[in-house]
């Protein structure tokens, strides 16, 4: 899990003073701009909590965590000025509250100003290097700035500091590498995720996409073979396999695979075939059947369809 959202980090505590720095006036401009665009939607829970926090602050006006929490609620409501005021008050009360920098950095990234975010994040990470949130936000900044290597390095740090990572951690890292033209490395990252988390469908499908795009036909066929061995429907996977075989010049096998896909599709209960996705799949089978009928195998093969 890459915790891009500030509320996820609101409870973590930093160790160094808040330094708004030269970016401050631009942030004010941004806040004014954002306030003008703020939606009017009610968010009843947040209002309730803000009322409660306001009462708590009245009772404990020197507690920075209360201001920080209220700032987060204000931010969720897009009450930018109120959020900024509470962040700043929290920082005044506890100059070691580095979290404020992370919160402001998130706002800068949201505003499409990653350079400003980087300044704050570098400071934040120098003081709070142990959590994944700062690295994730900095990876976001670096990605927006097309600093692919730096972004990938930050993604590696996110994984390093996340004891129980979600697929999102690996997917985000791979995406940065793909953007930077490092597809082989991206594939390695995805395989690393699969090795760690199990045969996760999202990572496996992304890896398959990459292998296909890199014309790694054997690797792709091996991967899809393993997926076909698992329980469940086979039709869409068989069709995908037929496409790979076709791209690999193995037309006869592709044709046989399409036949299998059609058989499997026809065996699927009506409730699942008579959907928009089912109809699209049927149309794909038709198209690939036509395509494979026109294609002759360019090479002999010892790979029977599964």
């Amino acid at each position: 899990m890459i915790p891009m959202q500030t509320e996820r980090v609101a409870h973590r505590r930093g160790t160094a003073p808040h330094q708004p720095g030269r970016a401050g006036w631009r942030l004010v401009v941004f806040l004014l701009w954002a306030a003008a665009l703020a939606p009017v939607g009610a968010h009843e829970d947040n209002f309730v909590e803000i009322r409660q926090l306001t009462a708590n602050i009245a009772a404990s006006p020197d507690n920075p965590r209360l201001y920080l929490r209220r700032a987060e609620m204000q931010r969720l409501l897009r009450h930018w000025h109120a959020a900024e005021a509470d962040y700043r008050r929290a920082a005044e009360l506890d100059p070691k509250l580095a979290l404020v920098d992370l919160a402001f950095a998130t706002l800068w990234n949201d505003a499409g100003q990653p350079e400003q975010a980087l300044v704050l994040l570098d400071g934040y990470l120098s003081r709070s290097p142990a959590g994944p949130e700062g690295y994730a936000e900095r990876a976001r900044s670096n990605r927006m700035l097309k600093r692919w290597a730096a972004a990938a390095a930050d993604c590696a740090e996110v994984l390093k500091h996340t004891p129980d990572p979600d697929p999102e951690v690996f997917a985000a890292w791979a995406a940065v590498l793909i953007d930077g033209g490092e597809r082989a490395q991206a594939l390695e990252v995805l395989n690393r995720g699969i090795a760690r988390l199990g045969r996760v469908a999202s990572l496996a499908m992304k890896a398959l996409d990459l292998e296909e795009s890199m014309a790694l036909h054997d690797a792709a066929l091996q991967r899809i073979g393993a997926m076909l061995a698992a329980p469940g429907r086979k039709d869409s996977l068989l069709l995908r396999k037929a496409g790979i075989l076709l791209a690999a010049g193995r037309g006869d096998e592709a044709r046989a695979c399409v036949v299998l896909a059609r058989q499997q599709f026809n065996a699927v209960p009506e409730a699942r075939r008579l959907t928009a996705a089912g109809r699209q799949l049927a149309a794909k089978i038709d198209r690939l059947e036509t395509q494979t009928a026109k294609t002759t195998s360019t090479q002999n093969t010892n790979h029977p369809p599964q």
Partner: peptide
């Protein structure tokens, strides 16, 4: 996103009536 990629694959895979 991984969530939507997973959901797509999951929905493609089921043969359940509901």
């Amino acid at each position: 996103s991984p969530q939507l990629e997973w959901a797509k694959r999951d929905l493609e895979n089921t043969i359940q009536q509901w």
